[in-house]
Amino acid sequence: MFSVPVLILISVLVGVLGSLTGLGGASILVPILVIFGIPMKEAVASTMATIIATSASSSVFNLRNKIANVRIALYLEIFTVTGAILGATITKIISPVYLYFFFAAFLLTSFMRVGIFRRILLEKMLSPSAGLDRFSRFLNLNGGYIDAVRNRLIEYRARNALLGGIGMFIAGLAAGMLGIGAGAFKVTVQENVLGLPPKVSSATSNLIIGMTALAATSVYLSCGFLNLMLMAPMVVGTAAGGIIGGRILNRVTDSFLRILFFTVVSVLIVQMLSKGIMSIWH
């Protein structure tokens, strides 16, 4: 039976899993809600609101520790917010059947973060040695933070600002359409296109995700897809799960995280594809 206590429990587990894998809660929650019979559009809209909670709670620490860069976040926000509004409007119009396939396809981009995909697709295309372009120089998206592990100031300066903006527009479009944060994609763009350090990319992406979700939520709010009683337990559960996941992250090995990441993403892709194919048949 799908009830409030069950959804809170699922959301806590998803929060832990999302925090460990870096996928965030929504990418895992949408397919789970669909399994429990929640209509795809309602699932997408309701998880969108939970992303704001997850983003806000993690940004509290990232901003306090000066890891998230507010100026870079606000510049990239122009692109992600526009993309999210467009994406949510597309979801409002199109048949939910297409959403299953879009969801599966976008989950595939999570693999861009790791191994051979990253080397082939990004590192070879955008050489880190490339100098600053004029637009990046004009924006002057620089920053610095104290790395607690190395105990020294890490300074950085973003490059390829325009290309990064286009990448973030695509991330926003997917986020708005699918009710996810698209965190893995955003981190990849920031690390490999803008050339930001991994910790800054992760923290800034977390900050951006909340504002992107806000833009998409506004669209879903008016069309009545937002189920508040569905959203409520997820907000509480994913926030708690995120905190637990953050605490145990340092105690698990990298190889365990990699296996967990591949397993979770593969299961979700298969689940969304099978749901899409079943929808066409019926």
């Binding site: 009830s3 409030v4 709010l221 008016s222 009545g224 189920n227 508040l228």
Partner: peptide, 28 residues
């Protein structure tokens, strides 16, 4: 507080039947 009240009233635990019609066609 909403979840606790919903639980105490004994009506709000079934997630699939709860609708939010007051939001429909209304902006923020």
């Amino acid at each position: 507080v909403g979840i606790i009240l919903s639980h105490r009233s004994g009506t709000g635990l079934d997630l699939l039947t709860e609708r939010v019609d007051f939001i429909h066609k209304s902006n923020f």
